[in-house]
Simulated assay, not measured.
Amino acid sequence: MTTPLTVTRIAHACQLIEIGELRILTDPWFTETATYHQGEPLAVDVASLGQFDALVISHEHYDHCDLDALVAGGFDLGTPLFGPGTVTTLAASRGFTNVHTIEAWESATLGELTVTATPGQHGVHEVTFVIQAGGRTVFFGGDSLRVPELDEIPGRFGKVDLAILPINGLCVRPANMLQVVMDAEQAAALTAALDPTVALPHHYAFHSGRLGDQIITKCDQDPRHYTDALARLAPQVASRIVLPGTPVMVL
């Protein structure tokens, strides 16, 4: 019997991944600042999250590593936390007591759950993840650029059931339009290489506020650009665009 696999986007890159009875939270972000806006409603607040078996964080940027919000909201700081050293050092300083440092191609196993850090590239040190349990395999792309080494994932891990990828092509205006996140076309090309059963875009509603969008960041907020590109490059892959709070079951 196939282990149930469901994903529910909370907002941005914060996802609730459920594999059987296991609950995994990715890249938490629950608050906003003058230049960091989710651009979509939060599906749930920290106090209503419930218990998790694991917390997986790709890098230390505030919109992916909102640890202060977790602490303030009463999140269980004994929850196993997986991430690169930049994240686990920060988490330990915030009171998290069960941290597991993994860098690219390193794995940590907790019960039936295995989390493997895979390569990533961003404005700061970042990893992406392959999350496995119950015979299911999930790729979580954080907000990385397109990294060619990720094409190795099917060969290393077998069939990918679910791929979750950023798609907004975020560029930093003051840094001569430096691109720091894969865009829709690049994400579709990576999806074609991964060949998952289901692919979900995320990290597209984000904005920097009216002024910030003009002087700090430039990005694509239309997820249809990704699904259109995917239909060309990998028509066999099912893709879904959903509102926060809408569960997607992977058969």
Rank of each mutant, 00 (worst) to 15 (best):
Leu165Tyr: 07
His61Thr: 00
Ala238Trp: 07
Pro41Lys: 11
Ile10Pro: 12
Ala69Asn: 08
Ala72Ile: 01
Thr3Met: 13
Asp228Val: 06
Asn168Ala: 09
Leu243Thr: 08
Arg232Asp: 08
Pro174Leu: 07
Gly142Pro: 04
Thr114Pro: 05
Ile216Ala: 15
His203Asp: 08
Glu106Tyr: 08
Leu70Glu: 00
Cys219Lys: 13
Ala133Gln: 05
Thr79Cys: 02
Thr89Met: 06
Leu25Trp: 07
Lys218His: 14
Gly212Glu: 09
Gly50Gln: 02
Ala188Gly: 06
Thr114Arg: 09
Gly39Ser: 06
Phe82Gly: 07
Ala175Val: 12
Glu149Tyr: 08
Cys219Ala: 14
Asp143Glu: 09
Ser208Phe: 09
Ile167Pro: 02
Gly245Asn: 00
Leu22Thr: 09
Val172Tyr: 15
His207Val: 02
Thr197Ser: 15
Lys159Arg: 15
Ile10Ser: 12
Val71Ile: 11
Val71Pro: 01
Thr79Trp: 00
Thr89Arg: 07
Asp76Ala: 05
Thr118Ala: 11
Thr97Trp: 04
Gln236Lys: 13
Leu233Phe: 10
Leu150Ile: 04
Ala238Glu: 14
Thr79His: 00
Ser144Gln: 11
Asp220Ser: 06
Ala133Asn: 03
Leu233Thr: 00
His122Pro: 03
Asp228Ser: 10
Ala69Phe: 03
His37Gly: 07
Pro84His: 05
Val147Glu: 03
Ile216Glu: 11
His122Tyr: 13
Gly142Phe: 04
Ala104Glu: 08
Gln179Asp: 08
Ala13Gln: 15
Ile57Lys: 10
Val237Pro: 03
Met177Thr: 12
His225Leu: 12
Cys65Ala: 06
Leu233Arg: 09
Lys159Asp: 13
Phe75Trp: 04
Gly134Tyr: 04
Gln179Phe: 12
Asp68Cys: 04
His100Pro: 00
Gly158Trp: 12
Ala175Glu: 13
Ala193Gly: 11
Thr89Phe: 05
Asn168Tyr: 08
Ser107Ile: 03
Ala234Cys: 01
Leu178Val: 06
Pro174Met: 09
Asn176His: 14
Asp161Arg: 12
Gly39Thr: 06
Val115Tyr: 04
Leu200Arg: 14
Ser107Cys: 07
Pro235Gly: 02
Asp53Ser: 01
Leu178Pro: 04
His64Tyr: 07
Leu49Ile: 07
Cys65Leu: 00
Gln221Asp: 07
Asp213Asn: 09
Gly95Cys: 05
Leu5Cys: 11
Leu165Lys: 05
Ala91Arg: 00
Leu251Gln: 15
Gln221Leu: 08
Pro154His: 01
Ile102His: 07
Ile19Trp: 13
Thr118Ile: 11
Leu230Gly: 00
Thr114Gly: 06
Pro154Arg: 02
His100Gln: 05
Asp228His: 11
Gly120Thr: 02
Thr191Ser: 10
Val242Pro: 02
Leu70Tyr: 01
Tyr204Gln: 05
Pro148Asp: 11
Cys171Lys: 15
Pro148Ser: 06
His12Phe: 15
Gly95Ile: 03
